[in-house]
Amino acid sequence: MKKFKSTVLIIVLGLIFSSHLYAKTAAKTAIIIASFGTTVPEAVQSIVNIESRVKAAFPDTEVRVVFTSNIIRSIWEKRSKEPKKWLKKGISEEILFTKNLLATFGDLKSQGFKDVIVQPTHLFHMEQYHDLTQYVNAIKSIKTIRDKWKPFNKIALGRPALGTVGDAYPYHDDLKRAVKTFAGDIALARQKGAAIVYMGHGNEVWSTGIYVELQQLMRETYPEVKTFVGSVEGYPGIEDVKKSLGHYTPEINKILLKPLMIVAGDHATNDMASDEEDSWKTILTKAGFDVETILQGLGSNDQFADIFISNIKDAAKASGISL
């Protein structure tokens, strides 16, 4: 009987050890959340919310966050010289000591990860996503004489929230999916009897026509509230938005002004909501509108944040990566 109990004990311990060993050796997939980043401490929470929801969705997968903006990382590097100060403010070490994409790939390589999914938090295929794609493709292109020496087995890149070019995932469907997550904003605007104006970032080197399409789809989906979408850079700008609003006076008097950005960072606090002469709030107030600003990034909207979880799953499936 003692011999039998000993045998059973050995088998059980063996199973426990082997399953633990398997769990450690099988954990070779990592997710990199690539965000432009922000220097505004309060705005970091929107990025943290996305990270937290991704971790909850993939509890057995390593998740890292990187900031793609060199300027933003340099500011956090200076702040990291006083770690206690920022840690007391609730800033995590991962944000305080944030790394770039290449450094993070290097860390993952040295730690034995073989499959990597890079999921951007960008809105559409514009300048930032284009550049991120080039970085990812460069790492994917590394070829070695023997496959076993390749730095990674598989690398996948997820698409932005509002989609990307190509027919694999029609961006019209991605737009419709995103518009559903704005229901809370529309309900608030309706409650206050207001129109809603979203301020996107935009850029000067790529078409921002996606904003016009988003605006039209918002109006079709939520006809009870007039929606306007503009951008800090590119078309339509604040003057275009003001002109469009003018067509609806005196029907529209009150405006909810909110960033169409992952974080309510520097652009939101200064270009949108400040009392400076050239801020969107000031310009629209001088135009005769009652303006209420909402400093909340899209990353704090759980439904919107979950778009990135869906895109991670799509990228993994298309690349044969197990999550």
Rank of each mutant, 00 (worst) to 15 (best):
G320C: 04
Q45C: 10
T39P: 02
K81Y: 13
E251C: 09
L96G: 03
K85M: 10
V232F: 09
S207F: 08
Q128E: 15
A315W: 01
T144M: 11
L87G: 02
V229A: 06
K78G: 13
T269S: 15
T221C: 00
K3Q: 13
H267A: 07
V44P: 02
V12S: 09
A34M: 04
N70C: 08
K281M: 08
I196E: 07
F105T: 03
V212G: 12
K55R: 13
T61E: 00
I33Y: 01
A138R: 13
D290M: 09
V212P: 07
L295W: 07
N153V: 05
N301D: 10
Q215N: 05
W86K: 06
K89M: 13
H267D: 02
K150P: 02
I312G: 05
V48K: 14
S110H: 12
S74V: 05
A138H: 12
I307D: 00
Y171T: 11
E127C: 11
T181Q: 01
N100I: 04
Y22N: 11
L188P: 05
K143L: 07
V205F: 15
H267N: 05
I238A: 10
V179D: 05
K242F: 02
F289L: 06
V205W: 14
L15D: 07
E277A: 14
G297Y: 04
S310M: 13
P170C: 01
A315D: 03
I210G: 09
I309H: 03
T164G: 11
R159G: 00
D275N: 14
Y235V: 12
A43D: 02
V65A: 00
V225S: 00
